[in-house]
């Protein structure tokens, strides 16, 4: 029983990160119907930004308290990553907005690989560790051990998701996003600045990924190819939840977190987890391509 609760906590921790990244996939898809295959790598870049800035801030010369350094690191990672995403959108995707959708998807794939290989060439393949912002404290309640880091990850993620949900549902920006998502040609007639809204969407998606990146870096190592695996899992989360659907992405993230943690428990070899996740994706796409929370789209003839 204790191990079960322990595993649930692990799954929530991992699922939080997947959900945060899945949100970026789903928001971009929702607004311009593009599968932004580069998003996993944008996440990867964000962890590197967090690594460099965090390391600088935690150097002994500054003597900043951990919580401040953590906050500054995350804020910086969010800003840099948002800027990167906006630039990518501006220079790689925007010229293709009128082109066949496949062109944009291929471009996204190319941008992702570019980011990976560029990082590999400039920074190198060695895994890195983020500095310790907090000393790890382990609590034991009723035989279940959990750490303060775990709590921070789960809580911060939940807070960010709640904030995003509020932005999309209750603010003008969110309303504009939904307007652009519905109809890109009519939205400008109602005074919605489509280009800015698309940029904002990319920026928000990327900064949420940067939150995920900073949190992820506190537990796991950072390397140029991490974006592939984590990115794909997050992407599957988005599809499972119904791509384009924000709450779906959150639910999907947690589902995938549970799949990853519990697959080795059920199947002996831990290497089966990719197989399980991708088979799930395949079956879902065949039988319910609009995801768990999505709705089918009627085809106009």
């Amino acid at each position: 029983m204790q191990t079960l609760i322990q595993q649930v906590l692990n799954a929530l921790q991992l699922g939080s990160v997947y959900a945060l990244i899945a949100l970026g996939y789903t928001m971009v898809y929702g607004i311009i119907r593009l599968i932004n295959f580069a998003h996993g790598d944008i996440f990867m870049v964000s962890t590197y930004v967090a690594f460099f800035i965090g390391t600088a801030l935690m150097s002994h010369a500054l003597r900043l308290p951990g919580i401040v350094a953590f906050g500054l690191t995350m804020a910086a990672a969010m800003m840099v990553t948002a800027l990167l995403a906006v630039l990518i959108e501006r220079f790689a995707y925007k010229p293709l907005r009128q082109a066949p959708r496949v062109s944009a998807v291929i471009t996204a794939l190319g941008v992702g690989l570019f980011l990976e290989n560029f990082t590999l060439a400039t920074i190198g393949p060695d895994p890195r560790f983020l500095p310790r912002f907090f000393s790890v404290q382990t609590f034991t309640v009723g035989g279940v051990a959990f750490s303060n880091i775990q709590i921070i990850i789960i809580a911060v993620s939940a807070a960010v998701m709640l904030l995003l949900d509020t932005i999309v549902r209750r603010t003008m920006v969110g309303m504009a996003m939904r307007a652009v998502s519905w109809d890109k040609s009519t939205a400008p007639l109602m005074g919605v600045p489509v280009d800015s809204i698309i940029s904002i969407t990319f920026a928000i998606g990327a900064s949420i990924a940067a939150v995920g990146g900073t949190l992820f870096g506190m537990v796991y190592t950072v390397d140029p190819y991490m974006g592939i695996r984590i990115g794909w899992w997050a992407f599957i989360s988005a599809v499972v939840g119904g791509i384009g659907n924000i709450r779906g992405a959150m639910v999907g993230g947690y589902i995938l977190g549970f799949v990853e943690i519990f697959t080795p428990v059920i199947l002996p070899a831990s290497t089966y987890r990719d197989f399980v996740a991708f088979s799930m994706l395949l079956l879902l796409l065949i039988f319910r391509p609009y995801g768990i929370l999505g709705r089918p789209v009627a085809q106009k003839v």
Binding site: F275, F278, S279, I286, P289
Partner: peptide, 25 residues
């Protein structure tokens, strides 16, 4: 037969990943 475009791209991608995963196992 049922899906095309982006979704079929994901199917092919999942296929690639599954093959790799099966071979690894």
């Amino acid at each position: 037969f049922r899906t095309r475009g982006d979704y079929l791209a994901i199917v092919t991608l999942a296929w690639n990943m599954i093959v790799k995963s099966v071979l690894e196992n």
